[in-house]
Amino acid sequence: MLHRALSLALPVVLLMLTACNQEPASPAVVRPALVVQPQPAEAVADTYPGEVRARLEPELAFRIGGKVSKRLVEEGQRVKLNQPLAELDPQDVRLQLEANRAQLAGAEANLALVRTERDRYQKLLDKQMISHSQYDNAENLYRAGIARLKQAKAEFDVAGNQADYAVLRAPQAGVIARRQVEVGQVVAAGQTVFTLAADGEREVAIAVPEQQYARFAVGQPVTVELWSHPGQRFEGRIRELSPAADPRSRTYAARVAFTSADVPATLGQSARVFIAHPGQAALSVPLSAVTAEAGQAYVWRVTGEHRVQRVTVQLGAYGTDSVPVLAGLTADDWVVAAGGHVLREGQQVRPVDRANRAVALTGKE
Protein backbone atom coordinates (compact mmCIF):
# COMPACT_ATOMS: atom_id res chain seq x y z
CA MET A 1 0.00 0.00 0.00
CA LEU A 2 2.77 2.41 0.90
CA HIS A 3 4.52 1.79 -2.42
CA ARG A 4 1.30 2.46 -4.31
CA ALA A 5 0.68 5.74 -2.44
CA LEU A 6 4.19 6.93 -3.23
CA SER A 7 3.78 6.11 -6.90
CA LEU A 8 0.59 8.17 -7.06
CA ALA A 9 2.01 11.15 -5.15
CA LEU A 10 5.23 11.40 -7.16
CA PRO A 11 3.70 12.85 -10.37
CA VAL A 12 1.80 15.44 -8.36
CA VAL A 13 4.97 16.58 -6.60
CA LEU A 14 6.85 16.80 -9.91
CA LEU A 15 4.04 18.86 -11.46
CA MET A 16 4.10 21.27 -8.54
CA LEU A 17 7.88 21.64 -8.78
CA THR A 18 7.66 22.31 -12.55
CA ALA A 19 4.98 24.96 -12.03
CA CYS A 20 7.14 26.67 -9.43
CA ASN A 21 10.11 26.84 -11.82
CA GLN A 22 8.08 28.45 -14.74
CA GLU A 23 8.15 32.25 -15.11
CA PRO A 24 4.92 34.17 -15.80
CA ALA A 25 4.29 34.89 -19.58
CA SER A 26 5.48 38.37 -20.65
CA PRO A 27 2.87 40.68 -22.20
CA ALA A 28 2.89 41.11 -26.04
CA VAL A 29 5.10 43.97 -27.27
CA VAL A 30 3.14 46.77 -29.00
CA ARG A 31 5.25 47.83 -31.93
CA PRO A 32 5.12 51.31 -33.48
CA ALA A 33 3.59 51.61 -36.96
CA LEU A 34 3.97 54.55 -39.34
CA VAL A 35 0.46 55.57 -40.38
CA VAL A 36 -0.81 58.00 -43.02
CA GLN A 37 -4.15 59.07 -44.37
CA PRO A 38 -5.02 58.77 -48.08
CA GLN A 39 -4.11 61.87 -50.06
CA PRO A 40 -6.78 64.03 -51.72
CA ALA A 41 -7.66 63.73 -55.39
CA GLU A 42 -5.72 66.77 -56.57
CA ALA A 43 -2.48 65.04 -55.62
CA VAL A 44 -3.28 62.09 -57.90
CA ALA A 45 -1.90 62.29 -61.44
CA ASP A 46 0.18 60.26 -63.83
CA THR A 47 3.73 61.59 -64.04
CA TYR A 48 5.89 61.46 -67.15
CA PRO A 49 9.50 62.65 -67.41
CA GLY A 50 10.22 65.02 -70.27
CA GLU A 51 12.69 67.42 -71.81
CA VAL A 52 12.19 71.05 -72.80
CA ARG A 53 12.47 71.42 -76.56
CA ALA A 54 11.85 74.12 -79.15
CA ARG A 55 8.53 73.96 -80.92
CA LEU A 56 10.28 74.37 -84.29
CA GLU A 57 13.32 72.15 -84.82
CA PRO A 58 14.19 72.19 -88.54
CA GLU A 59 16.82 69.75 -89.76
CA LEU A 60 19.33 71.67 -91.86
CA ALA A 61 21.05 70.15 -94.89
CA PHE A 62 22.99 71.19 -97.98
CA ARG A 63 20.98 71.32 -101.19
CA ILE A 64 23.92 69.82 -103.08
CA GLY A 65 26.40 67.09 -102.26
CA GLY A 66 30.10 67.58 -101.65
CA LYS A 67 33.00 67.54 -99.22
CA VAL A 68 32.70 69.69 -96.09
CA SER A 69 35.57 72.18 -96.04
CA LYS A 70 34.50 74.36 -93.08
CA ARG A 71 32.32 73.94 -90.01
CA LEU A 72 31.64 77.36 -88.55
CA VAL A 73 29.46 76.62 -85.49
CA GLU A 74 29.41 74.23 -82.55
CA GLU A 75 26.60 72.38 -80.87
CA GLY A 76 24.82 74.62 -78.37
CA GLN A 77 25.94 77.82 -80.09
CA ARG A 78 23.41 80.58 -80.74
CA VAL A 79 23.12 81.67 -84.36
CA LYS A 80 21.43 84.53 -86.20
CA LEU A 81 19.31 84.62 -89.34
CA ASN A 82 21.39 83.84 -92.49
CA GLN A 83 24.53 83.18 -90.45
CA PRO A 84 26.89 80.75 -92.27
CA LEU A 85 27.02 77.37 -90.53
CA ALA A 86 29.19 75.23 -92.82
CA GLU A 87 30.73 75.27 -96.28
CA LEU A 88 31.39 72.68 -98.96
CA ASP A 89 34.53 72.54 -101.07
CA PRO A 90 33.65 75.14 -103.77
CA GLN A 91 36.06 73.89 -106.43
CA ASP A 92 33.60 71.74 -108.39
CA VAL A 93 30.73 74.23 -108.29
CA ARG A 94 33.12 77.04 -109.19
CA LEU A 95 34.35 75.15 -112.25
CA GLN A 96 30.77 74.42 -113.26
CA LEU A 97 29.93 78.10 -112.90
CA GLU A 98 32.88 79.06 -115.13
CA ALA A 99 31.82 76.51 -117.75
CA ASN A 100 28.29 77.90 -117.80
CA ARG A 101 29.62 81.45 -118.03
CA ALA A 102 31.62 80.45 -121.10
CA GLN A 103 28.56 78.84 -122.66
CA LEU A 104 26.60 82.01 -122.02
CA ALA A 105 29.26 84.10 -123.71
CA GLY A 106 29.25 81.72 -126.70
CA ALA A 107 25.46 81.91 -126.96
CA GLU A 108 25.58 85.71 -126.93
CA ALA A 109 28.21 85.77 -129.67
CA ASN A 110 26.24 83.30 -131.77
CA LEU A 111 23.08 85.37 -131.40
CA ALA A 112 24.90 88.49 -132.54
CA LEU A 113 26.15 86.61 -135.62
CA VAL A 114 22.78 85.14 -136.65
CA ARG A 115 21.08 88.50 -136.03
CA THR A 116 23.48 90.18 -138.43
CA GLU A 117 22.89 87.47 -141.02
CA ARG A 118 19.15 87.78 -140.69
CA ASP A 119 19.27 91.56 -141.11
CA ARG A 120 21.44 91.20 -144.21
CA TYR A 121 19.10 88.65 -145.72
CA GLN A 122 16.18 90.95 -144.95
CA LYS A 123 17.75 93.72 -147.08
CA LEU A 124 18.47 91.28 -149.91
CA LEU A 125 14.91 90.03 -149.80
CA ASP A 126 13.59 93.58 -149.99
CA LYS A 127 15.64 94.02 -153.19
CA GLN A 128 14.35 90.68 -154.44
CA MET A 129 17.88 89.38 -154.73
CA ILE A 130 17.16 86.16 -152.71
CA SER A 131 14.24 83.83 -152.35
CA HIS A 132 11.92 83.63 -149.38
CA SER A 133 13.25 80.20 -148.49
CA GLN A 134 16.77 81.60 -148.05
CA TYR A 135 15.46 84.35 -145.80
CA ASP A 136 13.38 81.85 -143.79
CA ASN A 137 16.51 79.80 -143.15
CA ALA A 138 18.31 82.86 -141.74
CA GLU A 139 15.26 83.71 -139.62
CA ASN A 140 15.20 80.20 -138.15
CA LEU A 141 18.88 80.40 -137.27
CA TYR A 142 18.20 83.67 -135.49
CA ARG A 143 15.34 82.18 -133.45
CA ALA A 144 17.49 79.18 -132.55
CA GLY A 145 20.19 81.59 -131.36
CA ILE A 146 17.68 83.33 -129.08
CA ALA A 147 16.59 79.99 -127.61
CA ARG A 148 20.20 78.91 -127.10
CA LEU A 149 20.94 82.15 -125.27
CA LYS A 150 17.95 81.66 -122.94
CA GLN A 151 19.11 78.13 -122.18
CA ALA A 152 22.64 79.31 -121.45
CA LYS A 153 21.35 82.04 -119.13
CA ALA A 154 19.20 79.54 -117.23
CA GLU A 155 22.09 77.10 -116.83
CA PHE A 156 24.33 79.94 -115.66
CA ASP A 157 21.74 80.98 -113.05
CA VAL A 158 21.47 77.39 -111.84
CA ALA A 159 25.24 77.16 -111.54
CA GLY A 160 25.23 80.42 -109.58
CA ASN A 161 22.64 79.01 -107.22
CA GLN A 162 24.72 75.85 -106.82
CA ALA A 163 27.65 78.01 -105.78
CA ASP A 164 25.45 79.71 -103.17
CA TYR A 165 24.20 76.31 -101.97
CA ALA A 166 27.77 75.39 -101.05
CA VAL A 167 27.32 77.62 -98.00
CA LEU A 168 24.74 76.42 -95.46
CA ARG A 169 23.02 79.32 -93.66
CA ALA A 170 20.65 79.49 -90.70
CA PRO A 171 17.05 79.93 -91.90
CA GLN A 172 16.20 81.72 -88.64
CA ALA A 173 17.69 82.64 -85.29
CA GLY A 174 18.06 79.92 -82.70
CA VAL A 175 20.44 77.44 -81.07
CA ILE A 176 22.27 74.55 -82.72
CA ALA A 177 20.71 71.58 -80.95
CA ARG A 178 22.61 68.79 -82.73
CA ARG A 179 25.61 68.62 -85.03
CA GLN A 180 26.14 65.67 -87.36
CA VAL A 181 28.97 66.78 -89.62
CA GLU A 182 32.74 67.10 -89.44
CA VAL A 183 35.29 68.79 -91.69
CA GLY A 184 36.35 66.43 -94.46
CA GLN A 185 33.12 64.48 -94.42
CA VAL A 186 31.41 63.91 -97.76
CA VAL A 187 27.68 64.55 -97.51
CA ALA A 188 24.84 63.95 -99.91
CA ALA A 189 22.22 66.49 -100.89
CA GLY A 190 19.51 66.58 -98.22
CA GLN A 191 21.59 64.78 -95.58
CA THR A 192 20.99 66.34 -92.14
CA VAL A 193 24.06 68.10 -90.80
CA PHE A 194 22.54 70.35 -88.11
CA THR A 195 19.33 70.49 -86.09
CA LEU A 196 18.29 74.02 -85.19
CA ALA A 197 16.19 74.81 -82.12
CA ALA A 198 14.48 77.94 -83.36
CA ASP A 199 13.78 80.86 -81.07
CA GLY A 200 10.18 81.18 -79.94
CA GLU A 201 7.86 78.84 -78.10
CA ARG A 202 9.18 76.10 -75.85
CA GLU A 203 7.53 72.72 -75.32
CA VAL A 204 8.07 69.54 -73.31
CA ALA A 205 8.62 66.28 -75.18
CA ILE A 206 7.39 63.14 -73.40
CA ALA A 207 6.95 59.47 -74.30
CA VAL A 208 3.54 57.86 -73.69
CA PRO A 209 3.45 54.09 -73.03
CA GLU A 210 1.28 51.87 -75.20
CA GLN A 211 -1.12 50.89 -72.44
CA GLN A 212 -1.85 54.53 -71.61
CA TYR A 213 -2.16 55.89 -75.16
CA ALA A 214 -5.96 55.69 -75.35
CA ARG A 215 -6.27 57.97 -72.31
CA PHE A 216 -4.62 60.93 -74.04
CA ALA A 217 -5.97 63.42 -76.56
CA VAL A 218 -4.76 66.55 -78.30
CA GLY A 219 -5.79 69.62 -76.29
CA GLN A 220 -5.94 67.75 -72.98
CA PRO A 221 -4.91 69.99 -70.04
CA VAL A 222 -1.80 69.10 -68.05
CA THR A 223 0.57 70.68 -65.56
CA VAL A 224 4.36 70.85 -65.86
CA GLU A 225 7.01 71.07 -63.17
CA LEU A 226 10.51 72.19 -64.14
CA TRP A 227 13.44 70.75 -62.21
CA SER A 228 14.83 74.27 -61.86
CA HIS A 229 11.57 75.34 -60.13
CA PRO A 230 10.59 72.41 -57.87
CA GLY A 231 7.10 72.56 -56.42
CA GLN A 232 5.90 75.13 -58.97
CA ARG A 233 3.37 73.96 -61.55
CA PHE A 234 2.82 75.56 -64.97
CA GLU A 235 -0.34 75.05 -66.98
CA GLY A 236 -0.10 73.39 -70.37
CA ARG A 237 -1.90 71.20 -72.88
CA ILE A 238 -1.07 68.31 -75.18
CA ARG A 239 -0.40 69.94 -78.56
CA GLU A 240 0.76 66.94 -80.55
CA LEU A 241 0.36 63.17 -80.17
CA SER A 242 2.12 60.80 -82.53
CA PRO A 243 -0.19 58.29 -84.25
CA ALA A 244 2.57 55.66 -84.51
CA ALA A 245 4.75 54.10 -81.82
CA ASP A 246 8.52 54.20 -81.87
CA PRO A 247 9.65 50.82 -83.27
CA ARG A 248 12.31 50.35 -80.58
CA SER A 249 10.85 51.83 -77.39
CA ARG A 250 7.20 51.08 -78.26
CA THR A 251 6.16 54.46 -76.90
CA TYR A 252 4.27 57.32 -78.53
CA ALA A 253 5.89 60.73 -78.78
CA ALA A 254 3.85 63.65 -77.43
CA ARG A 255 4.47 67.40 -77.23
CA VAL A 256 3.16 69.54 -74.37
CA ALA A 257 2.78 73.26 -75.02
CA PHE A 258 2.75 75.85 -72.22
CA THR A 259 -0.40 77.92 -71.86
CA SER A 260 1.57 81.00 -70.79
CA ALA A 261 4.50 82.54 -72.63
CA ASP A 262 6.20 83.59 -69.36
CA VAL A 263 7.37 80.10 -68.35
CA PRO A 264 11.13 80.14 -67.50
CA ALA A 265 11.90 77.05 -69.58
CA THR A 266 15.29 76.65 -71.25
CA LEU A 267 16.36 74.19 -73.92
CA GLY A 268 17.38 70.75 -72.68
CA GLN A 269 15.92 71.32 -69.22
CA SER A 270 14.36 68.34 -67.44
CA ALA A 271 10.68 68.47 -66.56
CA ARG A 272 7.84 66.37 -65.23
CA VAL A 273 4.38 66.37 -66.80
CA PHE A 274 1.40 65.63 -64.55
CA ILE A 275 -1.73 64.41 -66.30
CA ALA A 276 -5.00 63.89 -64.42
CA HIS A 277 -7.84 62.00 -66.08
CA PRO A 278 -11.63 62.26 -65.70
CA GLY A 279 -12.98 59.65 -63.32
CA GLN A 280 -9.65 59.23 -61.58
CA ALA A 281 -9.64 57.97 -58.00
CA ALA A 282 -10.38 60.45 -55.22
CA LEU A 283 -7.62 59.07 -52.96
CA SER A 284 -4.10 57.71 -53.15
CA VAL A 285 -1.69 55.99 -50.77
CA PRO A 286 2.10 55.50 -50.78
CA LEU A 287 3.38 52.53 -52.74
CA SER A 288 4.96 51.14 -49.57
CA ALA A 289 1.51 50.83 -47.97
CA VAL A 290 0.28 48.33 -50.54
CA THR A 291 0.79 44.59 -50.23
CA ALA A 292 -0.42 41.93 -52.63
CA GLU A 293 -1.27 38.27 -52.19
CA ALA A 294 -2.52 35.94 -54.90
CA GLY A 295 -2.91 38.88 -57.26
CA GLN A 296 -5.12 40.84 -54.86
CA ALA A 297 -3.86 44.14 -53.42
CA TYR A 298 -4.62 45.14 -49.83
CA VAL A 299 -3.59 47.61 -47.13
CA TRP A 300 -3.59 47.50 -43.34
CA ARG A 301 -6.10 49.91 -41.83
CA VAL A 302 -5.69 50.89 -38.17
CA THR A 303 -8.86 50.89 -36.04
CA GLY A 304 -9.68 53.12 -33.11
CA GLU A 305 -8.41 50.37 -30.80
CA HIS A 306 -5.03 50.57 -32.49
CA ARG A 307 -5.44 47.21 -34.14
CA VAL A 308 -4.70 46.51 -37.78
CA GLN A 309 -7.37 45.32 -40.15
CA ARG A 310 -6.67 43.92 -43.60
CA VAL A 311 -8.64 45.80 -46.27
CA THR A 312 -8.81 44.75 -49.90
CA VAL A 313 -8.44 47.72 -52.29
CA GLN A 314 -8.80 48.34 -56.01
CA LEU A 315 -5.89 50.30 -57.45
CA GLY A 316 -5.32 52.48 -60.49
CA ALA A 317 -2.17 53.10 -62.51
CA TYR A 318 0.97 53.08 -60.35
CA GLY A 319 2.86 56.35 -60.02
CA THR A 320 6.46 57.02 -59.03
CA ASP A 321 5.78 57.05 -55.27
CA SER A 322 2.02 56.64 -54.85
CA VAL A 323 -0.88 54.71 -56.31
CA PRO A 324 -4.56 55.73 -56.77
CA VAL A 325 -7.15 53.84 -54.74
CA LEU A 326 -10.30 53.24 -56.76
CA ALA A 327 -12.25 51.48 -53.99
CA GLY A 328 -11.80 50.22 -50.42
CA LEU A 329 -10.77 53.33 -48.44
CA THR A 330 -12.18 56.65 -47.28
CA ALA A 331 -10.45 59.94 -46.60
CA ASP A 332 -10.78 59.42 -42.82
CA ASP A 333 -8.97 56.09 -42.77
CA TRP A 334 -5.50 55.60 -41.39
CA VAL A 335 -3.31 53.01 -43.08
CA VAL A 336 0.08 51.57 -42.23
CA ALA A 337 2.56 53.21 -44.60
CA ALA A 338 5.33 50.61 -44.40
CA GLY A 339 6.11 47.12 -43.13
CA GLY A 340 2.72 45.63 -43.89
CA HIS A 341 4.25 42.25 -44.79
CA VAL A 342 5.08 41.56 -41.09
CA LEU A 343 1.64 42.41 -39.70
CA ARG A 344 -1.17 40.01 -38.88
CA GLU A 345 -4.90 40.50 -38.58
CA GLY A 346 -5.94 42.09 -35.27
CA GLN A 347 -2.39 42.88 -34.16
CA GLN A 348 -2.16 45.87 -31.82
CA VAL A 349 0.19 48.67 -32.88
CA ARG A 350 1.23 52.09 -31.69
CA PRO A 351 0.45 54.54 -34.54
CA VAL A 352 3.04 57.25 -35.14
CA ASP A 353 3.63 59.87 -37.84
CA ARG A 354 6.82 60.48 -39.83
CA ALA A 355 8.23 62.54 -36.95
CA ASN A 356 7.72 59.54 -34.58
CA ARG A 357 4.91 61.34 -32.76
CA ALA A 358 1.91 59.44 -31.48
CA VAL A 359 -1.21 59.76 -33.67
CA ALA A 360 -4.66 59.95 -32.12
CA LEU A 361 -7.09 57.96 -34.27
CA THR A 362 -10.29 59.75 -33.30
CA GLY A 363 -13.61 58.58 -34.62
CA LYS A 364 -12.32 55.18 -35.83
CA GLU A 365 -14.30 52.01 -35.22
Results as ranks from 00 to 15, higher is better:
281 A>K: 10
258 F>K: 10
231 G>A: 10
236 G>V: 12
269 Q>Y: 00
315 L>Y: 05
330 T>P: 03
267 L>I: 08
283 L>V: 01
258 F>E: 06
275 I>C: 03
261 A>H: 01
245 A>V: 07
315 L>N: 00
262 D>C: 01
251 T>P: 01
321 D>C: 01
256 V>Q: 01
299 V>N: 07
331 A>P: 02
261 A>I: 03
329 L>H: 01
307 R>M: 01
304 G>L: 05
231 G>I: 15
227 W>T: 12
320 T>K: 08
243 P>Y: 10
286 P>V: 00
297 A>R: 02
344 R>Y: 07
266 T>R: 08
288 S>G: 01
208 V>P: 11
231 G>K: 06
241 L>Y: 10
297 A>I: 09
340 G>Y: 04
215 R>P: 09
289 A>L: 05
274 F>G: 04
202 R>N: 00
319 G>N: 08
241 L>K: 03
334 W>F: 11
258 F>M: 03
225 E>F: 09
237 R>S: 13
280 Q>D: 12
226 L>M: 13
329 L>Q: 10
285 V>F: 02
288 S>N: 11
227 W>K: 14
237 R>Q: 14
342 V>K: 09
310 R>L: 09
223 T>I: 11
342 V>C: 05
310 R>Q: 15
307 R>K: 15
232 Q>I: 14
343 L>T: 07
300 W>Y: 08
300 W>D: 00
308 V>P: 03
248 R>T: 15
